[in-house]
């Protein structure tokens, strides 16, 4: 069978589909001081997956605010710097007006994912962390 670390080189999704892959990629991103990008990406996925059942509404609002505060509000943060201004305004509007929607972070997640695919992911595959692991 193909060893997991070879699968990680196939695509960003193959890497993020494996716990060890995530762990190693996060170590690399931490070294590059951009681990928040990965945390944000997973936070967006987790937010979208929240069940729409009764009583969850309060939790969703709280979580949307927490994601907004941690990753988007601070304009100097790595995630905030990489997301388009229009996308940030959209999320801010949703949070302020309490228009909480499972897809409200989708655009921002896509933007961060594109940057990881074009930039940090290829760098990771060439990094000492990955090469030593293999």
């Amino acid at each position: 069978p193909t060893p997991p670390y070879l699968k990680w080189a196939e695509s960003l999704h193959s890497l993020l589909d494996d716990q060890d892959g995530i762990h190693l990629f996060r170590m690399f991103l931490k070294q590059e001081e951009c681990a928040d990008m990965l945390d944000f990406w997973f936070a967006c996925s987790g937010f979208r997956k929240l069940e729409a059942n009764e009583g969850n509404e309060e939790k969703k609002v709280k979580l949307a605010k927490a994601i907004y505060k941690k990753f988007i509000l601070d304009n100097n943060g790595i995630v905030s710097r990489q997301i388009k201004p229009a996308t940030k305004s959209f999320i801010k509007d949703c949070v302020m007006k309490l228009h909480i929607d499972p897809a409200m972070f989708d655009q921002a997640q896509t933007e961060i994912q594109t940057i990881m695919e074009d930039n940090t992911y290829p760098l990771f595959l060439k990094s000492d962390i990955y090469l030593e692991y293999t």
Partner: peptide, 20 residues
């Protein structure tokens, strides 16, 4: 009720794949 940080951390973990 969880603090914002706990909630965020749980959310991040919930989106990760389960152990092989």
């Amino acid at each position: 009720m969880d603090s914002e940080d706990d909630l965020l951390q749980k959310c991040i973990t919930s989106a990760m794949p389960k152990q092989r």
